[in-house]
Design a protein around this nucleic acid. Structure first.
Length: 526
DNA sequence: AACGATTTCAACCGCGCTCTC
DNA sequence: CGAGAGCGCGGTTGAAATCGT
């Protein structure tokens, strides 16, 4: 194992007088004060020298090792060898199921902060954890499974650490809270969520651009997602008022607050088993890369785990902000997590997607895998029947197409009624719906159903119109039409997590329905 | 048994932070 | 205050090990 000899090309071969130059290794090294430093695998002799040195001098001052011992290794290499292999109390062997769970939890909270994660796993090194995680990513990607169990977000933090400032993007409220409470600032957009959809194996014959994720993210998708990218996100206070929602409108209409909205949006993605570590730089990257329809991020559907999840590593977490929390919140199954992942799908499907939080991982994963499989099929249908991915905003047909397909995603195996399909059935009109409508749809999933949505047994919202998603804002935000209109776009901005976004930021402004009267008048309902 | 594909993991590299001078 | 050294971290690489055919 270890580095190949390719590295030696930089610095040539070991010097003839190196004490370790004749140990049979062929690895090259770099020059350091006349001594050619060795690279590649360590020999037991080298290990012994290093151990001896540390015994004498203690850890640190690694560059002095070579001077004191003649060991032809650079300080960095010594440090690494000691930390990863030689230091006492190192735990070797496979991760236990407990450790695996802890890693998953920690990663959900920290992102790729391997060293910090290692601090929570005595005897384990950051390198080990990193390797484990990368392996896990690949495995789950292959299996078409989400990276995190769906109940992770809901359970990974103690109640008292949850703030009341949910955001529109990525994960549900609890998830956001997790992120926020750990010093993360949730991303302004749900790109991770969108992209996670590409965990599902690509549908043969369907270009990546036709995946659901891309459908969501298409720059032509009503300017909904992509244009969010470029919106600078100003700092928000946890209790920052949300536009005027419920803030004393004329009729004191029921509050359509951010919490609900967030939950709605997030739930819709949780239905796919999505939950993410936060990547605060993700938005920055997108900004700097000038996200547009050609942006690989949006168009490249071939999932790159290292890309997406490596992004998380940018989320530097101030150490003070990470608190040791009760991490044992899961109820670990006896099996190792990955053994669950790899369990064959058999028997009747478990009941939910996502898990309502009460079930085991196995059920979650099995069901999620199934769900993703179905989505795969649905995306195929979309690919051929919908122009959502690349379509122009000319009418609501794309929405309808999309929603029609989505209705097909009714899952009879979800007795808990938490599947998307069941939600459609139970609470939504059957006219055109889009995935974005799902934002609204999911109100009913996680929260008490809001009777204000129904007047005389009818929904106020005409979902056949592409701006239906905005309708809830219109309706629930009573007031003069002029105000309503402005508020609608503001609402979108708010919905997307940035109240600073002007109406013109959103594609809706240019949409043909923009100047239409409010869609959600009660009289509109047949 | 042979061979190719895949996985694992030790090690290197570059970057950035902190400390010292 | 700036430069340089030391160190730590995260990403990447590639040989060895394992698996599948």
């Amino acid at each position: 194992m270890g580095r190949s000899s390719t590295a030696e090309s930089e610095d040539g071969v070991l010097s003839a007088d190196s004490p370790l130059s004749n140990d049979g290794d062929n690895f090259g090294g770099s020059s350091n004060g006349g001594v050619v430093l060795k690279k590649g695998p360590w020999t037991s002799a080298e290990d012994a020298i290093l151990v001896e040195y540390v015994k004498k001098h203690g850890e640190g001052n690694w560059n002095a090792v070579q001077k004191h011992t003649g060991l032809a290794r650079c300080g960095k290499s010594c440090r690494l060898r000691w930390a990863n292999h030689l230091r006492p109390n190192l735990k070797k062997g496979a991760f236990t199921s407990e450790e695996e769970r802890l890693i998953i939890e920690l990663h959900a909270k920290m992102g790729n902060k391997w060293a910090r994660m290692a601090a929570h796993l005595p005897g384990r090194t950051d390198n080990e954890i990193k390797n484990y995680w990368n392996t896990r990513i690949k495995r789950r990607q292959r299996a078409g499974l989400p990276l995190y169990p769906s109940d992770l977000c809901l359970q990974s933090l103690p109640e008292n650490q949850q703030l009341s400032s949910p955001r529109i993007y990525g994960g549900d409220k609890a998830c956001n809270d997790i992120l926020q409470n750990n010093g993360y600032r949730a991303p302004d957009i749900m790109f991770d969520s969108y992209n996670i959809l590409t965990f599902a194996p690509e549908v043969p014959g369907i270009p990546g651009s036709v995946s659901m994720g891309n459908s969501f993210a298409s720059p032509h998708s009503y300017g909904f997602v992509p244009q969010t990218i470029g919106v600078p996100d100003r700092a928000r206070e946890p209790d920052e008022p949300m536009s005027d929602y419920g803030s004393g409108g004329v009729n004191e209409a029921p509050t359509f607050n951010r919490t609900r909205t967030d939950s709605c949006v997030n739930k819709s993605f949780q239905s796919f088993g999505l939950c993410f570590p936060y990547d605060p730089d993700h938005t920055k990257k997108l900004l700097s890369s000038g996200v547009n329809q050609d942006t690989p991020f949006m168009s490249d559907v071939t999932f790159s785990a290292s890309e997406h999840f490596a992004d998380a590593q940018k989320s530097e977490l101030p150490s003070l902000q990470y608190q040791e929390t009760g991490l044992g919140v899961w109820d670990p199954p006896p099996e190792s997590f990955d053994s669950l992942v790899q369990s064959p799908l058999s028997g009747p499907l478990p009941s939910h997607c996502p898990s309502p939080g009460s079930s085991g991982l196995l059920e979650d994963l099995i069901y999620e895998a199934k769900a993703l499989g179905k989505l795969e099929n649905q995306s195929s249908a979309w690919a051929t029947s919908s122009n959502v991915s690349h379509g122009e905003v000319t009418d609501g047909s794309a929405f309808r197409t999309c929603s029609t397909e989505f209705k097909g995603y009714i899952d009879p195996n979800s007795p808990s009624g938490n599947s998307m399909g069941s939600l459609f059935n139970r609470y939504t009109p059957t006219t055109g719906r889009s995935l974005e409508d799902d934002v609204t749809m999911h109100h009913v999933k996680s929260e008490v159903f809001d009777p204000s949505w129904i007047v005389d047994g009818e929904s106020k919202v005409d979902y056949s119109r592409p701006d239906a998603i905005l309708g809830s804002c219109w309706v629930e935000q009573s007031g003069p039409a002029s105000k309503q209109k402005g508020s609608t776009t503001d609402s979108i901005a708010a919905l997307l997590g940035d109240t600073s976004a002007s109406a013109s930021t959103w594609g809706f402004t240019s949409c043909s329905w923009n100047n239409m009267p409010p869609v959600c008048q009660i009289s509109d309902i047949p």
